[in-house]
Amino acid sequence: MILSLSGIRKSYSTAEGIIEILKGVDLSVAAGESVALTGESGSGKSTLLHLAGGLDQPDAGSIFMNGRDLGQFGESERARYRRSDVGLVFQQFNLIPSLSVATNLSFHAKLADRYDAAWERQLIEGLGLESYLGRYPEQLSGGQQQRVAIGRTLAARPPLVLADEPTGNLDEATGDAVLDLMLSLARNAGSALLLVTHSSRLADRLDRKVVLHGGRISE
C-alpha cells in the first residue's frame, strides 16, 4: 500500500464547542489504484486529504506513506514529503505569479528531480495549454489556472496524488481529459490516486469508491 490511514480522528474547536469531524477513519490506497472519496458537504473529505498530504496532523491514529509513519516526521521531513512524495490538487491554485505557465508547469518536477520533457508535453496537450505557455497566472481564467495547477502536480509524477474536486472549475470535456491524465499517471507510474468528487459519473470511472459518512469510511 502506498497510503494507509488507520483510526484517524480529528476535531476542531468552534463557537459551539468541540466538533469531531473524523471518528476513526481507516483507508488504504495501493500503487496504481484510483479511489473516489465521496460524501456530503462538511463530512470531512477535505480534512482527510489535508491529513494525508502532511498539511495537518490527526488527533489520533496513524498515517503511513510507503511504510513511513508521517507522525514521526519533523517539519523538514514534512516539507520534503510534500515536495517529493505527494501531489496536491486543491481548490486554491497556488500558482507562482511571477512565473510563466511553462515555468509553473515544470517547477515542482525539477524541484523533485523528476522532470520529464516528454511527459510534460503530453500533459500540455492533454490539458489544452499549448496557447498559454508564455502567459502568467493573472492573465488566465480560473479554469485555465486550474488546468495549470493540475499539470504542475502531475508533471512531477508523485507516488501519491490527492485531488479535491479537481474538475470543479472545468467543463465536462476538459474535466474528462484531466481525469484521463490522472488515471494514466496512476496506471503507468504506479501512483496512488485519492480523489474527492461529488460527481457519481466521475467516481464510477475510478477503481473504487468509498463514502465518508458520520466520520467513518464505508464502501
Rank of each mutant, 00 (worst) to 15 (best):
S84R: 15
I63K: 01
K45C: 06
G54I: 05
A31L: 00
D69Y: 00
L27C: 08
E40A: 15
A52R: 01
R82A: 05
G87R: 05
A31C: 02
E77S: 09
R83F: 03
S41E: 10
S46H: 11
G42L: 04
G67C: 02
V89D: 07
L70H: 04
S62Q: 15
A36F: 03
G67Y: 00
D56R: 11
P97T: 14
A36I: 03
A60F: 02
P58C: 09
F90E: 09
E33M: 05
R80S: 14
R82H: 04
N66H: 09
L88F: 10
D59L: 08
D56Q: 12
L49M: 04
K45P: 10
S84F: 12
V29K: 03
P97A: 13
S43E: 12
L27W: 09
G54P: 10
G61F: 02
Q57G: 13
S43P: 14
E33H: 04
G53R: 01
R82T: 04
V29E: 04
Q92P: 08
Q72C: 11
Q92M: 13
V86R: 05
L49P: 05
P58I: 04
A60G: 14
S46V: 07
E75S: 14
G44H: 10
A52P: 05
F73V: 05
G87W: 02
R83P: 10
E75N: 13
R78D: 09
E75G: 03
V86F: 00
G87S: 08
V29P: 05
Y81E: 02
G39H: 12
T47D: 12
G32R: 07
R80K: 12
G53V: 01
Q57T: 15
F64T: 11
N66I: 00
E40D: 15
L55S: 06
G67W: 00
G87Q: 08
L70I: 05
V35Q: 06
I63T: 04
F93I: 11
M65W: 13
V86A: 09
R80D: 15
T47S: 14
R78T: 06
S43K: 12
H50N: 15
V29Q: 04
L51V: 08
L55V: 11
I63H: 01
I63E: 01
L48F: 09
E75M: 06
E77L: 02
V29I: 13
A31G: 08
G53Q: 00
G61Y: 04
S28L: 00
K45V: 05
E40L: 13
S46R: 10
G53F: 00
D59W: 06
H50Y: 14
L27H: 06
F64K: 12
A30W: 01
R80N: 13
S98A: 15
S46P: 11
R83L: 15
G71K: 01
F73K: 02
A30D: 14
H50E: 11
K45M: 07
A36G: 08
L88I: 11
A31W: 00
L37A: 11
S76C: 03
L95N: 13
S62D: 13
Q92R: 15
Q92A: 15
H50T: 13
G44I: 05
L55N: 05
H50R: 14
G67M: 00
S62E: 14
G44F: 06
G44W: 07
A60T: 12
G61S: 09
V29C: 11
G61D: 12
V89M: 06
